Computed example of a mutant assay.
Amino acid sequence: MSDITGERGMERRLPKFFRRIDPAVATAFGCILLLLAVGSIYSTSFLSVEYLLQQLKVASFLGVIATGMMIVILLGQIDLSVPWSVAVGGMMACAAAAFGHVGEVLAIPFGILCGMAIGLANGVGVAYLRIPSMIITLATNAVAQGLMVVYTGGFSPQDSATTAMRYIATGFLVPGVPNAVIIWALIGAAAVFALTRTTFGRSVYAIGNRERAAYMSGIDTRRVVLIAFVVSGGLSAFGGVLLAGYASKAAQSMGDTYLLPSIAAVVLGGTSILGGRGSYLGTVAGVILITLLQSILSVMQMPEAGRQIIYGVVIIAMLLLYGRTPANR
């Protein structure tokens, strides 16, 4: 008993800032510093400003996708349709660009709307039909894959990204700062505001903690869940638009490598996989950590299978450390 009292007294003596730091977030930032140190051993340019900005640009694509994933995970749900939501967003944006000047203007919003349509199907299935999110999102992912294979005839898409898509992914509105990083910062700021300053954000945390209690308190839980999945689908598709602009064209497999990293980044940042707990700062740390880890594994020439194993181990480790709080449903 005295040990517990002593620990609480020591905690009270710490500055308020340190008492509010999430241990998972602090751990993630500590791992980032460790990876930077390890990376500098393999390459002397690893700590250069140019290289770090390049890593931030690469991280921004994952960051946009992980933002939507975080909102869904805060609900205690999961979105496994990310791979083909990303691909559909990029492919449909490029497809729209083939229809002249009007198509080029509408390419980006059209790609995002296609992703939102996938999210709408997921949200209706989870919120109104009460289908487990793991099942419905896997199903919509398979349907989206089939539709894109039919559309392309099984071959690589021939449509190219628009000038606007390439500019927002690779250009520099602010000298020295990639546009993709600015876009991620704006989306992140909007996410922080929505989650901390709006009724929607409070409802997301409430549903994640205990959905039945949230419903009994007057929250329209089905509408909140629906909106969350639509946002996730739209952000995944927007990530696909950015990737298509970065590569100047879309590819059928462009989203395959973003499912596990997006989940790992969210969980690594301290968001509970059971829902109801997590901060966007942690997701930012998780995204940067995953990106740096990918960079180091590339330098080490780690095969893709090895990377997937590492992501899985990371998720399991974070579940063991921070995700074993009983679910109150």
Rank of each mutant, 00 (worst) to 15 (best):
L186W: 07
Y151E: 10
A97H: 00
I135R: 05
A189R: 11
G153Q: 13
H101A: 13
N122V: 04
A142R: 03
A190M: 13
P178T: 05
F155R: 14
Q158V: 12
L113N: 01
A107C: 09
Q158S: 14
M92W: 02
I183S: 07
V124L: 15
F155Y: 12
V102Q: 07
T163S: 14
A190C: 10
A194M: 15
A190K: 02
G100Q: 06
F172T: 13
I108N: 06
M148Q: 13
E104V: 04
S160A: 13
L120E: 05
I112W: 03
A121M: 12
V181C: 02
A97V: 08
R130E: 12
A180H: 10
G90M: 03
L147R: 08
L186Q: 00
M116D: 01
T152H: 02
P175A: 14
D159H: 09
L147W: 09
A127K: 09
V150Q: 10
G153A: 09
Y167N: 05
M91P: 03
A97G: 15
Q145G: 07
T170S: 15
R166N: 14
A127M: 00
A121G: 09
Y128R: 11
Q145N: 10
I131Y: 12
L173A: 12
V105I: 15
E104W: 02
R166D: 12
A121Q: 00
V126F: 07
I131G: 06
I168E: 00
F172E: 14
A180G: 10
A144K: 04
G119Q: 08
G119L: 06
I135N: 03
G123Q: 00
A97P: 09
I118W: 04
T162Y: 07
E104C: 04
V181Y: 04
G90V: 04
A142C: 12
A189S: 14
